[in-house]
């Protein structure tokens, strides 16, 4: 089974969860997702997701000047983003429980 297909549905949640721990700039978020085990996450998917979440008002941005290299645009969760994270987490937990039960042959409650 192709995990990139699975990722598509949960990338928003994954990005929001990463940002809950700490603010981050684009490539830093990609790296943290990969370190968390989502090795197949695509750079363009993360960048696109960040732009979309930002457009939807779930994220705020601020620029941190860097001594060497480009200025970095950091993304941070705002209130709306936190709300979305909470809601999506609940949905995900329920969904994962059902799937787990289904796949492992334990009847759902």
């Amino acid at each position: 089974m192709d995990s990139t297909q699975l990722l598509k549905g949960v990338l928003d949640l994954a990005v929001l969860a990463v940002l809950r721990d700490a603010d981050g700039y684009g490539y830093d978020i990609v790296r943290r997702l990969r370190a968390a085990g989502l090795e197949e996450v695509g750079d363009a998917s993360v960048y696109g997701t960040l732009r979309r979440l930002f457009q939807a008002g779930a994220l705020t941005t601020y620029v941190v000047p860097s001594e060497e290299g480009p200025h970095r645009k950091y993304y941070a969760l705002n209130k709306a983003g936190l709300g979305q994270l909470e809601l999506s987490s609940k949905t995900w937990t329920g969904f994962a429980k059902s799937m787990d039960a289904l796949v492992n042959g334990k009847a759902a409650a």
Binding site: K8, L11, Y25, G26, Y27, D28, R31, G42, D43, A44, S45, V46, Y47, G48, T49, R51, R52, G69, P70, R72
Partner: peptide, 30 residues
């Protein structure tokens, strides 16, 4: 620039063809 600065290999090696990148970006951005 960040991607390029923090690893080895060209952008195309690491991110694939620009056209594929654009498709993925468009899909992810909805």
């Amino acid at each position: 620039a960040e991607v390029l600065a923090e690893g080895d290999g060209s952008l195309r090696d690491r991110l694939g063809e620009p056209e594929a990148y654009a498709d993925e970006l468009r899909a992810a951005a909805g």
